[in-house]
Design a protein around this nucleic acid. Structure first.
Length: 647
RNA sequence: GCCAGCGUAGCUCAAUCGGCAGAGCAACGGAUUUGUAAUCCGUAGGUUGCCAGUUCAAUUCUGGCCGCUGGCUCCA
């Protein structure tokens, strides 16, 4: 007998192996019918799973957030069943629940079209209305294999082979009607527990089997499923809102940047307004680095093969580099990173231990080869500027420097209004993609881990995601569509100092090897601005707005006064423009509003008389008439405090 | 790179079965001088991404290239 404790504090004694469902039935038949899944000691379980040891049990019904995963997992099975009905030769890949939906991969001779998706969805609705009971089955490995062989599911057999090594004797299957699938669950009790009007199949895409480009490409159908139609509609509304904030769309609408077919994919042209934004960021960045103990440097865009050979880039980073160009019979490469040149600067003289840590920073523009399919607006480009710095320090200073950089990074990102981050610790890359011995990697990785853990920061481990020269901490921010993008990176490097034979003279009068930390706070300026655009939906805080104030004369006779106001503002360091077109005031306001200019200043006879403006905000607030000097004071204070609000 | 979809005026999008390529906005010219999200009239704007092919005829069908969009382990 085992003891199962329930949320109300009571304890049930049952025989080991009793299913969750039968325990729930003893509590109440209604609850048993409504049960979607359960938590056993906090772990999500299928209601038909057996209870094997003492533990706590919580039954989950609709309305609780954890049930979505189960709903989506079942939806993916229903979709697979529908596909099998329509395309009996389809081979099943994997079909998990994901963040806002689910997918299932199929090997199919013909490629699926939008029409096919409609048909599949219709068949899914049929399966849901048939209300098929979903049964859980446990089979010994050999029987499981026979079953899959009889179904000719070769991908599933491969999964089974991997699983049987780990999980031993029995394998679980879920069966609904004629459909049976290798699966751990959890699942709903019947297909009818899905809401057929809360399921959609938005897209189909190619996906390599097990993510490996050397293996067959399967067709992945993406779906989304919710508890209710209203939830689905809310989700679709969120998607539409997100699309409106897409930086590619806003970049065009707000005239920030463009990328040209004639110029090249992934190569960004900054228009006046975008360049203004970029400059504002850079100016703040330089100012912070002056205060933060950094020396600013600048290095060339190309360098001889010799340099990249010493650094190891030609051995470990060649895939990311462009073909060399011949200059007087010597190969030169466009730089993919700034570090080698900064190291050359370090090496131009001898260094005392007293000078360390030495922090060199630059806005360094680099070019990297990215596969055409991964390019994405400003987020993934081929030419970009890194706010790059290299900290050269003594071994005893590394810890403090990493902490210092982390704090600096947070200050910087928060100044731009970002509040939510994901932190990753990236470890040693595999298969000869890394330099240095394993012990060093371990030591360095531990140092980074300690810096995170001492601060009690939650982080995830990106196994094998480190740079070729050392492990790193990455800080990512999320875009509107939930994709996360790396901004800050703090990289430990014990390799380049060796390769370049960097030294300093320690107290003992002897040469010692310094450590090096590479770091970028904003990461790529291009990507960072892409994130900023989406974060604010183009309505930047005043200090970042390319145009901060727009003066709107009501009639032509007010244009001179409008210019007078704008000049006064410019003299006070405010980016102000005048709308001199012969449009009506309403149209001028609309134009400014669409450009998301924070302050609109309407001037007519009344204002001209009183040395004032009628102040309207892009939030549609009308602040009424204000003296020009007062408005200047207000805007200046918003700029200086980097305020998020306008009043 | 691979799979799928897409590419028409500066922008957003039409064009039935292969039969003279169109609208709104923007631009330009003129009129209007307006009080908190679009004043009216007119003008101009195109090698339908590029290159081949099929056809009497191609924006439309076929192939190649360029570019864009979504996706390419969130692991049964």
């Amino acid at each position: 007998m085992i003891r199962i404790s329930l949320p109300d504090g009571s304890v049930k004694e049952v025989e080991a192996g009793t299913t969750i469902l039968s325990v729930v039935e003893s509590i109440g038949p209604r609850l048993a019918k409504a049960a979607v899944c359960a938590l056993v000691d906090g772990e999500l379980k299928d209601v038909r799973d057996p209870l094997i040891q003492d533990g706590s049990l919580t039954v989950l019904t609709k309305g609780e957030p954890q049930v979505l995963e189960t709903i989506r997992h079942t939806a993916s099975h229903v979709m697979a069943q529908a596909v099998k009905r329509l395309f009996p030769n389809a081979k099943l890949g994997i079909g998990p629940a994901i963040d806002e939906g689910f997918y299932y991969d199929f090997d199919l001779a013909d490629s699926l079209t939008e029409d096919d998706l409609d048909k599949i969805l219709a068949e899914m609705k049929t399966i849901i209305s048939q209300d098929l009971p979903i049964l859980r089955k446990e089979l010994p490995v050999n029987e499981a294999r026979e079953l899959l062989q009889s179904l000719d599911e070769n991908y599933k057999i491969e999964l089974l082979d991997d699983l049987s090594e780990i999980e031993g004797e029995t394998i679980t299957f879920f069966e609904q009607g004629e459909f049976i699938d290798l699966c751990r669950g959890p699942h709903l009790q019947t297909t009818g527990m899905l809401a057929s009007d809360a399921v959609k199949l938005p897209s189909v895409a190619g996906a390599y089997w097990r993510g490996d480009e050397k293996r067959p490409m399967l067709q992945r159908i993406y779906g989304t499923a919710w508890e209710t139609k209203a939830d689905l509609e809310a989700y679709e509304w969120r998607q539409e809102e997100a699309a409106k904030r897409d930086h590619r769309r806003l970049g065009k609408e707000l005239e920030l940047f463009s990328i040209h077919e004639e110029g090249g994919a992934g190569l960004v042209c900054w228009h006046p307004k975008g360049a203004r934004l970029k400059r504002t960021i850079e100016e703040f960045w330089y100012q912070q680095h002056d205060l933060g103990g950094y020396e600013i440097v600048a290095t060339p865009h190309i360098g001889k093969a010799q340099l990249w050979s010493i650094s190891g880039h030609l051995d470990f980073y060649r895939d990311g580099m462009y073909s060399p160009m011949d200059i007087d019979g010597v190969d030169y490469y466009i730089k993919p990173m700034n570090c080698p040149y900064q190291i050359l600067i370090y090496k131009t003289k001898g260094h005392s231990y007293r000078e360390l840590p030495l922090r060199m920073a630059e806005m360094g523009t680099v070019y990297r080869y990215e596969r055409s399919g991964v390019l994405h607006g400003l987020m993934r480009v081929r030419g970009f500027t890194i706010d790059d710095a290299h900290i050269i320090c003594r071994p005893d200073q590394v810890d403090a420097e990493i902490r210092r950089v982390y704090a600096f990074s947070m200050t910087m990102l928060m100044a731009f209004g970002f509040e939510e981050f994901e932190i990753y610790l990236s470890t040693r890359p595999y298969e000869g993609k890394a330099v240095g011995d394993e012990a060093q990697w371990e030591q360095a990785t531990d140092a980074l881990r300690a810096a995170l853990e001492d601060r009690g920061l939650p982080y995830k481990v990106d196994d094998g995601g480190g740079a070729f020269y050392g492990p790193k901490i990455d800080i990512k921010v999320k875009d509107t569509l939930g994709r996360s993008w790396q901004c800050s990176t703090i990289q430990f490097d014990f390799n380049l100092p060796n390769r370049f034979d960097m030294t300093y003279i320690a107290e003992d009068g002897k040469e010692h090897r310094p450590f090096m930390v590479h770091r970028a706070l904003l990461g790529s300026l291009e990507r960072f601005i892409g994130c900023l655009i989406e974060h604010y939906g183009g309505a930047f805080p005043v200090w970042l707005s390319p145009i901060q104030a727009n003066v709107i004369p009501i009639a032509d006779r007010h244009v001179d006064y409008a210019h007078e106001v704008a000049e006064k503002m410019k003299a006070a360091g405010i980016r102000a423009t005048v709308n001199e077109t012969s449009e009506r005031m309403n149209a001028k306001i609309r134009t400014a509003q669409l450009q998301k200019i924070p302050y609109m200043m309407v001037v007519g006879d009344r204002e001209q008389e009183a040395d004032a403006v009628a102040l309207r905000l892009r939030t549609e607030q009308d602040l009424g008439d204000m003296k020009v000097d007062d408005v200047i004071g207000l805007i200046r204070s918003k700029i200086e405090s980097k305020a998020q609000d306008l009043t």
